[in-house]
Design a protein around this nucleic acid. Sequence first.
RNA 1: GGCCGAGUGGCGGAAUUGGCAGACGCAUCGGACUUAAAAUCCGAAGUUCCGAAAGGAGCGUGCGGGUUCGAGUCCCGCCUCGGCUACCA
Length: 967
Amino acid sequence: MPRYDARRIESKWQSYWDNHHTFVTSNTPPEGSQGKLYVLDMFPYPSGSGLHVGHPEGYTATDIVCRYNRMKDKHVLHPMGWDAFGLPAEQHAINTGTHPRETTYTNIDTFRRQLKMLGFSYDWSRELSTTDEDYYRWTQWIFLQLYDTWYDPDYEWTGLDGVNRVGRGRPISELPIPGNVKGDEAVRRYQDTRRLAYQSEAPVNWCPALGTVLANEEVTADGKSERGDHPVERRKLRQWMLRITAYAERLLGELEPLDWSESIKLLQRNWIGKSIGAEVDFYVGDTTDPETQILEFAPWKAARQQVGFPDHPGDFVLRVYTTRPDTLFGATYMVVAPEHPIVDHITTLEQRVKVDTYRDIVSRKSDLDRTDLAKQKTGVFTGAYAVNPVNGKQIPIWIADYVLMSYGTGAIMAVPAHDERDWEFAQSFKLPNTPVVEPPGSWIAENNVCDTQSWRGREEDALTLYQELLKKWKQEGARPAATDKLESLIDFSQKAPEWMDGLEQGLARRYIEYPQVCHKAFTGEGSAINSGEYDGLSTAEFKRKITEDLSAGGLGKQATNYRLRDWLFSRQRYWGEPFPIWHELDDEGKPTGLTRPVAVDELPVTLPDMEDFKPKGTPDPPLSWAPDEWLYATAEDGTRLMRETNSMPQWAGSCWYYLRFADNKNSGAFIDPEVEKYWLPVDLYIGGAEHAVLHLLYSRFWHKVLFDRGYVSTPEPFQKLVNQGMILGENNEKMSKSRGNVINPDDVVTQYGADSLRLYEMFMGPLEQVKPWSMSGVEGVFRFLGRVWRMIVDERAEDVTLSPAVQDVPLTDEQQRVLHKTIKVVTEDIEKLSFNTAISRMMEFTNVFTQADVRPKSAMESLVLLLSPFAPHLAEELWEVLGHAKTLAYEPWPTHDESMLVENEVEVPVQVNGKLRAKIMVPVDANPPAMQEIAEASEDVQKQIEGKQVVKVIAVPGRMVNFVVKG
RNA sequence: GGCCGAGUGGCGGAAUUGGCAGACGCAUCGGACUUAAAAUCCGAAGUUCCGAAAGGAGCGUGCGGGUUCGAGUCCCGCCUCGGCUACCA
């Protein structure tokens, strides 16, 4: 009585694949290869809780693609490894004293066992862990490349991909040294300011509970640590940074041609956040006397005309960045970030205390407090004024923490009439408001700028005018809030037509004259008002013109900014890659600020053995209490050296693992150039959307640096990217221990087998969609697999043998059609990653063939092959039952014959006035008149059109017929 | 607040891209097999109304409009849910 016994079958074939090295892939293409295919999963962090049902979703999808393509003679690279550095293992060490290495390797064993249990066709000989010394040796090596590189934005060159580019990462030795930089040490310090890996004293997120600083992305929106939910505050610390901003333009532009979903590309674009605007200089001067200042302004402006726009504005000029230079005439005050250095120079005596107090409060605020939108905007007047370069008006300078030092120039001109934040601030502090862009009348109406009372006494035919306006606004797609208002005005003016004016013009005039009646800022585009000679220009024209004019006067220039910030690359942790960097010490043992790289042949810098990982409550990293023999050395030139004691963040290892998989045993290079050229780029990369921004951006950045330095041949690492959707619990909520809705893959496999788990995860719905788990759904696919089993295997026999119903007979026409349709659709669906519909198709096939008393063996073989990427264990077993001696992993994929699909007649619907009234059989190739004739001959149709006038007949061959009738 | 995605039976979902809405599966109900159950197999079913029945009529893809011979699919406006994001000038 051999029933479908998943457990027996699955362990049998898993050992078969292992023993026969079925999926071990060589770096040279096999004979008859149809080309390479690199299919990659986002490798997991091996957590202590083991595999989650979310993992096998993407992993099954890629496995199907791989198994399918092997059968199509593709040379497939499909590796797996571990992103194994990271906080949890270290936290565990702190709590239990178990070394992170031990925890990590135990967890990896669990993950490997679980993945093998699911029958994924990885080439396990390529397995790697980011924590392997042999791996992080090369992570350190790549870091040294970053350290050794500066970005030259003007360099024209041709990459290994044959494309011409402007801008390249070049060796630091090629950095031009300005003439005023003299002496060896000065040169080194100058170089240090240009490296892609550099040190900086930066305010960082210090988390006292974790005893570490965190990257912005590790802090939640409400200012808590992502791990552990502890409070986070700001502190200034020496940090390693990576100059990813140098690559912003490349990261943006080279995203375009990639085969990624538009929404992920958009996410990356928004993250990079490019904006084009202008930098403008406002004269401040060295005086607190407004009259003196205004006297100085004219000569300053004249001088600027001569010398042009300088690189640095100097201490007494305030440089702002704006994307709306067209609103320059509407600037009614200035705001600088509290940390802005100019504050020290300009603050007046009277304001000094207030300013200092404010700066002090702000400096202790966490990012949370600073960005809390619920709160009112805060700020303090500095007592100083700046002179608007376009009209010589003196406007007050404030400091406020809604302006960030880290973006643009750290200073803005505030235009409350046309910027929401400035509007709010101006409201709070009763600052003036000058509109300089005329909004459409409908916008003004919608925002309650006018009250009807004010139009009393103006005579005109308001009714007609309003009706015309209403029509116009509706055509323009004005919001109901505006049109409704107008409608009520029409209603009103019908009763009292005499006091209405031309509303649209009136509204605008009203807006110009009394901006304060408006209840919000107009941030759209329009035409210029209150802007002197520029009045009447459209926003776009104005921007162009004034940028030109400012530029000509040496008062401003076009500027581009990115939201993207440099990447904070150091952590105060033990369980991460050590930096391959020495700090030079002076005679007193203090760091001189000069660094030198660890020699490449001395890599890796391994982690010292340590027992004590507990943070000491200071920002000192655990490595700072490593043994002296690790920590210190003396260079050949006699200089005392101390190691960098920060470690790299978890992102480091995952930035380049896809490269190492191609050549994981190479001890002479991180990857062999020939191997790189063969396998890269990754053809399909599947993983969760949570990595849509950071991991992918960081990886792309490293890849581009390696590309610029000539180590890789493609500018992008991942050609096609797909994000699988999250799997929710049965209650439609996110799976979590606290909700008690976590599904453990081990349990599912024990009960139903790996094939059922795989099949179910693919059957649930579209790969990219969020979808809830359902245990009875698993039951359903399990039953399907049982049906397939019984379709082929004789259940009543003692041993596993072929069912007597399966015979070497030809297929009936109907069976041919079903078979070939199934082959066609399953093949297409796999190509589209539409696995749920592929499975439905195979179910339909099975429903048809199980009903046949005699089942053609050839059809059974085809189905087994089609099913094999989805349920490989069962398929292998059935393949054996069907009389084959070796694995089906490399059997040719079935092909369909289009001629087998054609039917002579098809049923098409007949509609009357678009409503389904009858169905008729027509020859497939019937033309419209023929179809109409057949339709008209049908009794049902005649009943419907009897006594009515047929106005028109639409017939779509093979599709439908529609009679349009009257009467 | 901004951006992205999604709303189709009791449930997960399908629908050749404008042409028979609800494939396939789950749950449900009925039947067969069985002493009985499990397993398995066969069958029914969007919904309302009319009819004893066969059958028929209407309504149906979040809501309201529009385009079209024809709309789940296209256009306009709105609502709800989910994800990401957070003052970027």
